[in-house]
Amino acid sequence: RQGFVPAAYVKKLDSGTGKELVLALYDYQEKSPREVTMKKGDILTLLNSTNKDWWKVEVN
Protein backbone atom coordinates (compact mmCIF):
# COMPACT_ATOMS: atom_id res chain seq x y z
CA ARG A 1 0.00 0.00 0.00
CA GLN A 2 1.33 3.43 -0.95
CA GLY A 3 0.73 6.77 0.71
CA PHE A 4 2.24 9.72 2.50
CA VAL A 5 3.84 10.04 5.93
CA PRO A 6 5.36 13.08 7.68
CA ALA A 7 9.03 13.37 6.67
CA ALA A 8 9.96 14.19 10.28
CA TYR A 9 8.64 10.76 11.36
CA VAL A 10 11.06 8.72 9.20
CA LYS A 11 14.81 8.43 8.64
CA LYS A 12 16.56 7.33 5.44
CA LEU A 13 18.49 4.07 5.68
CA ASP A 14 21.49 2.92 3.66
CA SER A 15 20.04 -0.29 2.24
CA GLY A 16 22.77 -1.17 -0.24
CA THR A 17 20.11 -2.79 -2.45
CA GLY A 18 19.38 0.14 -4.76
CA LYS A 19 15.99 0.63 -3.09
CA GLU A 20 15.64 3.66 -0.87
CA LEU A 21 14.36 2.57 2.53
CA VAL A 22 13.22 4.57 5.53
CA LEU A 23 12.83 3.65 9.19
CA ALA A 24 9.72 4.79 11.08
CA LEU A 25 10.90 6.74 14.13
CA TYR A 26 7.39 7.10 15.59
CA ASP A 27 3.93 5.59 15.27
CA TYR A 28 1.73 7.45 12.79
CA GLN A 29 -2.00 6.96 12.24
CA GLU A 30 -3.29 7.96 8.82
CA LYS A 31 -5.63 10.95 8.89
CA SER A 32 -6.73 10.87 5.24
CA PRO A 33 -6.99 8.26 2.44
CA ARG A 34 -3.73 9.58 0.90
CA GLU A 35 -1.72 8.74 4.03
CA VAL A 36 -0.58 5.39 5.46
CA THR A 37 -0.34 4.12 9.03
CA MET A 38 3.06 2.99 10.32
CA LYS A 39 4.47 1.78 13.61
CA LYS A 40 7.79 2.77 15.16
CA GLY A 41 10.46 0.44 13.79
CA ASP A 42 8.69 -0.30 10.48
CA ILE A 43 10.90 -0.35 7.37
CA LEU A 44 9.20 1.33 4.40
CA THR A 45 10.21 1.78 0.76
CA LEU A 46 10.73 5.45 -0.10
CA LEU A 47 9.06 6.37 -3.39
CA ASN A 48 9.32 10.17 -3.38
CA SER A 49 10.99 12.67 -1.04
CA THR A 50 10.76 15.87 -3.12
CA ASN A 51 8.32 17.48 -0.67
CA LYS A 52 10.18 18.49 2.50
CA ASP A 53 7.19 17.80 4.78
CA TRP A 54 5.51 14.68 3.35
CA TRP A 55 7.25 11.67 1.81
CA LYS A 56 5.52 9.05 -0.33
CA VAL A 57 6.26 5.53 0.87
CA GLU A 58 5.17 1.97 0.28
CA VAL A 59 4.30 -0.17 3.27
CA ASN A 60 5.94 -3.57 2.76
Results as ranks from 00 to 15, higher is better:
2 Q>V: 13
29 Q>F: 14
27 D>W: 03
29 Q>T: 15
40 K>T: 07
41 G>P: 00
30 E>L: 08
51 N>V: 05
1 R>T: 07
22 V>S: 02
56 K>D: 03
27 D>E: 05
39 K>C: 10
48 N>E: 15
2 Q>P: 04
29 Q>L: 13
46 L>F: 03
4 F>G: 01
6 P>L: 05
13 L>I: 15
20 E>P: 15
30 E>N: 07
60 N>P: 15
39 K>A: 09
9 Y>M: 14
45 T>G: 09
16 G>V: 15
14 D>H: 13
47 L>D: 01
42 D>C: 06
54 W>I: 03
51 N>Y: 07
18 G>D: 13
26 Y>D: 08
34 R>S: 13
12 K>P: 09
53 D>Y: 15
45 T>F: 12
34 R>M: 13
13 L>A: 04
34 R>E: 13
17 T>P: 14
13 L>S: 04
45 T>K: 13
39 K>Y: 11
36 V>P: 02
28 Y>T: 00
3 G>R: 03
44 L>N: 02
33 P>A: 12
30 E>S: 15
15 S>R: 10
42 D>F: 04
53 D>W: 15
17 T>I: 11
35 E>G: 09
60 N>K: 11
23 L>D: 01
58 E>M: 10
45 T>P: 15
36 V>C: 07
11 K>M: 14
29 Q>I: 14
36 V>Q: 03
48 N>K: 06
20 E>S: 14
8 A>N: 13
9 Y>R: 07
21 L>D: 03
46 L>T: 01
20 E>K: 12
39 K>D: 04
23 L>P: 00
55 W>A: 03
18 G>A: 13
3 G>L: 05
33 P>M: 09
36 V>L: 14
1 R>A: 07
15 S>K: 10
55 W>Y: 07
25 L>F: 03
13 L>F: 11
55 W>I: 04
28 Y>G: 00
41 G>T: 02
34 R>A: 13
18 G>K: 11
43 I>Y: 05
59 V>T: 15
19 K>H: 13
15 S>I: 11
16 G>R: 12
22 V>I: 07
27 D>I: 02
33 P>F: 09
24 A>E: 00
4 F>D: 04
9 Y>I: 08
20 E>N: 15
49 S>R: 08
19 K>Q: 12
22 V>W: 08
54 W>S: 02
40 K>G: 05
7 A>E: 03
2 Q>Y: 07
34 R>L: 14
58 E>D: 04
25 L>E: 04
4 F>L: 09
37 T>A: 07
8 A>Y: 09
55 W>C: 02
